[in-house]
């Protein structure tokens, strides 16, 4: 079954499945051990390297399982992990599995413009005021009205020495917001890139501060970004193009990486995101097969009761009008052919001498005849008239 159309072929909202958007993506780490090589880490030796690629390879690479930062000795001890997702996704969760005791403070950021600007999604620390200058998150989520980046407890330490940071986009969103109807929630969950900033390493208790001395490092095995490829309800899957860029497989007359605009000929009404109730498919302009391009006119759309605003451009086959639905001057409708026929409009063919003009009646094809002249094209004298020698008055009354 086609998830984007019902059994009758009518469009319906469709979304790609939930995936780990970070899987196979190239992670950039601001610090990775092994350059220069140490006893336990050598970037040039695959058996002893701890590259950031391990975070998104799902254990596919041989050798060590964990990425590791350099040994950090001086404040600030920030290390940043950046994952470009390749295109816009609608986030569901972000998780980081740490190989050693988890950091005491982490900031989670997102970009919606491929890394040009960043906005926080959440902060994680037992000392929110100290680390981020923010109060701890209220027990029942943000007071609203919109989602916001809150400061949550520090990543959880797991038995055996590892740790886990788990963030759900719902954690920053007030209850009751619906993705279909809330543009602010749509904006909140949308990201093209994710950044995890490890700002304070694990220490014994809360005693660490900027004057502390020692050697610290971060280590993590997996970074997951759970989400759906963002297609605005107009595609059920995303696929890589020949250059490897991920694109929505757009339906409903839409196009673009996120199906966020109508295809050129599908502009009879404005683009809209699909909802569970209404697919809001882009509609093709009605040009009776005589035009390849059209443009949207908001004034006409309003006047039509928000039903149709498309205006056909460059009507061909001698047609004219907003929908190429009548014949242009000098042509008339052939009643024997449907309006969509290439030859639906016939030339008037008014007689050069018998007709008083070149434009015929667009419905009947009747040319305007001079006095005493008859026929559809004014090519003969009416009964009771005979041809004269004057081209100005070609027919005169029969004596």
């Amino acid at each position: 079954p086609d998830p984007c159309h019902d059994e009758g072929g009518a469009p319906r909202s469709c979304v790609p499945g939930l995936v780990n958007a970070a899987l196979g993506r190239e992670v950039r780490a601001s610090s990775t051990c092994g350059r220069p090589a140490s006893r336990t880490c050598d970037a040039s030796d695959p058996r002893r390297a701890h590259p950031a690629a391990l975070l998104t390879s799902a254990g596919a690479a041989p050798g060590p399982l964990c990425w590791r930062s350099e040994a950090l000795t001086q404040s600030p001890l920030n290390v940043t992990l950046t994952v470009p997702l390749g295109k816009a996704f609608e986030l569901v969760f972000v998780s980081v599995r740490f190989c050693s005791a988890p950091p005491a403070a982490v900031a989670l950021l997102k970009s919606q413009d491929h890394g040009r600007s960043w906005a926080p999604l959440g902060f994680f620390s037992a000392r929110c005021g100290h680390d981020f200058g923010r109060p701890p998150a209220p027990a029942h989520g943000p007071p609203g009205p919109g989602p916001e980046a809150l400061c949550f407890p520090a990543p959880q330490a797991l038995p055996g020495g590892g740790g886990l940071l788990a963030f759900s986009v719902q954690d920053g969103s007030p209850p009751g917001l619906d993705l279909d109807s809330s543009p602010v929630l749509q904006d909140w969950v949308t990201a093209t890139d994710i950044q995890v900033v490890l700002t304070r390493p694990a220490t014994t208790g809360d005693t660490w501060d900027s004057t502390a001395t020692g050697t610290y490092s971060y280590s993590a095995a997996e970074l997951q970004v759970g989400g759906r490829c963002k297609c605005n309800g107009h595609a059920a899957r995303c696929r890589p193009d020949p250059q490897g860029h991920l694109l929505c497989d757009c339906q409903h007359g839409t196009e673009g990486p996120d199906c966020s605009r109508c295809k050129p000929f599908y502009c009879d009404r404005p683009w809209q995101r699909a909802t569970a109730r209404e697919a809001h498919a882009c509609l093709a302009c009605s040009c009776n097969g005589h035009a390849r391009r059209c443009r949207f006119n908001m004034e006409l759309f309003r006047l039509s009761g928000r039903r149709s605003g498309g205006v056909c451009l460059n009507c061909r086959h001698n047609t004219a009008g907003r929908h190429c639905h009548y014949c242009r001057e000098g042509f008339y409708r052939d009643p024997g052919r449907p309006l969509s026929d290439r030859r639906a409009c016939r030339a008037c063919d008014c007689h050069p001498v018998g007709a008083a003009g070149k434009t015929c009646n667009q419905t009947t094809g009747q040319c305007p005849c001079k006095d005493g002249v008859a026929g559809l094209t004014c090519d003969r004298c009416a009964p009771g008239f005979q041809q004269s020698r004057s081209p100005v008055a070609p027919c005169v009354k029969t004596p």
Partner: peptide
Amino acid sequence: EVMPTLDMALFDWTDYEDLKLAA
């Protein structure tokens, strides 16, 4: 009654050369 079509050869174009060209 079907009337014959206008016969262009019967017209005297002497004073209407421009009309002849247009035709």
